[in-house]
Design a protein around this nucleic acid. Structure first.
Lengths: 343, 343
DNA sequence: GTTAGCACTCATTCAGTGTGAGTGCTAACA
DNA sequence: TGTTAGCACTCACACTGAATGAGTGCTAAC
């Protein structure tokens, strides 16, 4: 359906448009690239490409703009993979040296890194859905009235919170308590600690109602958190550099969407079945109507098959797919090993 | 220097401008408020007010706009305190129920809350400058190769990080080690753990170089972190709703500034000597040139006299000072008690 | 199949003009 | 002496129409 020359022209148009954000005219193509044919011929081909649904015209006397379909074709069968620059690789390699503290911080700074490297908005979803199981809890004494309750999960995540302890209760007693409670809950998935188990726990801490409530609260929180999907947004200001967002209203609309955690969660919803590669969603392929002029490149982390989170770069359809995809691919693999060694 | 009528007129102009963002004309004042004098008279007064430096004219045929000086006068001696609505109080009271997990999260969600309530950008600086001292550390075993290193400070803050442990080292041995190290470091301010102390620590862990490095790294991090001032930004999109930021360039400039942590740290730098009240900085009073058309209301938290952090609301000079100040005052006091009971 | 030439479309720019919202000044008035 | 009506003046803003130029589509010739 598309002859090689049309393919070539389409490619040039897409690449031109990606770099300039201006509708591409036949003459521009003829001038910029030596195809050995005249603008008129290119016009004819462009006309055909428009009929095929690959190009669109904002108005009669403008150049032409690639359609979502064109980008899809470009990404699937025209684009060269693109390599990650040495500078970017160095940036990634150095980035996590100082930031391996905990998962949240890793995700947060990944968002920052991604948006910096791709010059686009990035979204990172920390999805701990059903991931971790209770390992044990412990009290770290602080002073006569307070201790820090540490709940340790089998994936290495820890939840701390301060709890009031019965005045003068001794460390040894706290340890004893912690042991008893731990034995009850050990191995239980954090998000499945229900009333029945808590009832058992209550029987251990029967002596002190308040302490029990504190512990329950912390458990709930951690269980809840483990179901919770935390969203990190990076580089919102990158939006403002894109000519397609010169209009404040448009920025407001999109930013409004992205500040709604629920929306972002839906947007990044991982379909369980997908393989672990990158997923590219282009323009009108997006279900969310507010971003149908945007594209998204998404990668999902798995640790031992369990989903840990997903990260995405969101930008105008006129995105540097080659660059974004290669960066994400590299970063994705990098993080995979990071997670693998950390755990 | 200002007669009562001028005062009244100035007040009306300021309040009008705050709510409309349009330069205020003499006729508007005459029409909207029944002062019993004609626009011409008001014009005369306005002219005087301009000479006194309280009003400015964007151009000849526009109305007038309050100067920084006017807002300063307004805030200091004209404005009524304003009360926090029941809805806002309820919002605050409910807000932290689910969010008392740890300091970072409290700060983060405070930023969100503040910007939501004041419809402005909020900045929260978690300043742990020289606050905490080392209490003890402990290893929480995870599996044969990993443990979680918990460093507990006397203010109840905890740092967790995963460390590799020598294969097969037993929990009891780890506890012994932890005890030895803890005894060396106990009571030392976290940001003053220097090479001399670390050398002592090394002698404890001489057996395992890697473990030592891990511990040192974590200590450094926590020491570093305790000096570090973490910045949380809330509600950046609020900017876009303000007519003074209809221009994308302006938004970009300001957002660029606010994403620079260093700039924000400088901006929020707390002058040690100030009392614990609110600090209002208006327009040109700001030292940072990029925000001289903005005002900032700032409150600093102290726990037992030690600075824990500071929060600020940043908006156009045309800010609803009454509302913002009362909200911040209320929230400030609320958090004070929250911190007091949490600690 | 290719291309030059030309008519046609349409966004954008710019000057010119009118309009209306303001002010400042002056002179009259209470 | 303070107040006000009246009027001239300023200036942003909106509107208009013309010129411009970047494009395309079509046609006829090569």
């Amino acid at each position: 359906m598309m002859n090689p020359r049309q393919r070539k022209i389409l490619q040039l148009i897409i690449e031109d448009y990606i770099s300039t954000a201006e509708p591409v005219a036949s003459r521009t193509i003829a001038r910029r690239h030596d195809l050995g044919i005249s603008p008129a011929t290119i016009r004819n081909e462009m006309s055909d490409l428009e009929l095929l649904g690959y190009l669109e015209q904002p108005h009669t006397s403008a150049g032409r703009v690639p359609s979502s379909r064109a980008y899809r074709y470009y990404v699937d069968s025209m684009m060269e993979p693109g390599t990650v620059t040495a500078a970017d690789r160095a940036l990634i390699n150095g980035w996590y040296k100082e930031r391996r503290r905990n998962l949240d911080e890793i995700f947060q700074s990944t968002a920052k890194l991604l948006s910096r490297m791709t010059q686009n908005v990035s979204l990172v979803l920390a999805d701990k859905q059903g991931s971790a199981s209770f390992l044990y809890l412990r009290f770290l004494p602080l002073d006569r009235e307070h201790a820090i309750l540490c709940i340790v999960a089998d994936d290495g995540s820890v939840d701390n919170c301060m709890v009031d302890i019965p005045l003068g209760m001794r460390p040894a007693e706290l340890d004893y308590l912690a042991g008893k409670v731990s034995r009850i809950l050990e191995g239980k998935p954090l998000n499945q600690i229900g009333d029945d188990l808590l009832k058992e726990v209550r029987e251990c801490i029967i002596e002190d109602e308040m302490l029990f409530n504190n512990v329950v609260q912390a458990l709930r929180r951690m269980g809840g958190r483990s179901r919770e999907q935390k969203v990190f947004l990076g580089g919102a200001k990158q939006l403002l550099n894109k000519p397609e967002f010169r209009d404040v209203e448009r920025v407001k609309e999109l930013l409004g969407l992205l500040e709604e955690e629920k929306v972002v969660r839906d947007l990044l919803q991982i379909d369980e079945g997908s393989d672990s590669g990158l997923k590219v969603t282009i323009g009108t392929e997006n279900k969310l109507s507010g971003i149908q002029d945007c594209s998204m490149v998404q990668a999902t982390y798995r640790v031992n098959g369990r989903i840990v989170g997903t990260m995405a770069v969101l930008g105008p359809t006129r995105m540097e797919y080659g660059k974004v995809i290669s960066v994400m691919d590299y970063l994705h693999r990098y993080l995979k090993t990071l997670f693998a060694t950390a755990r």
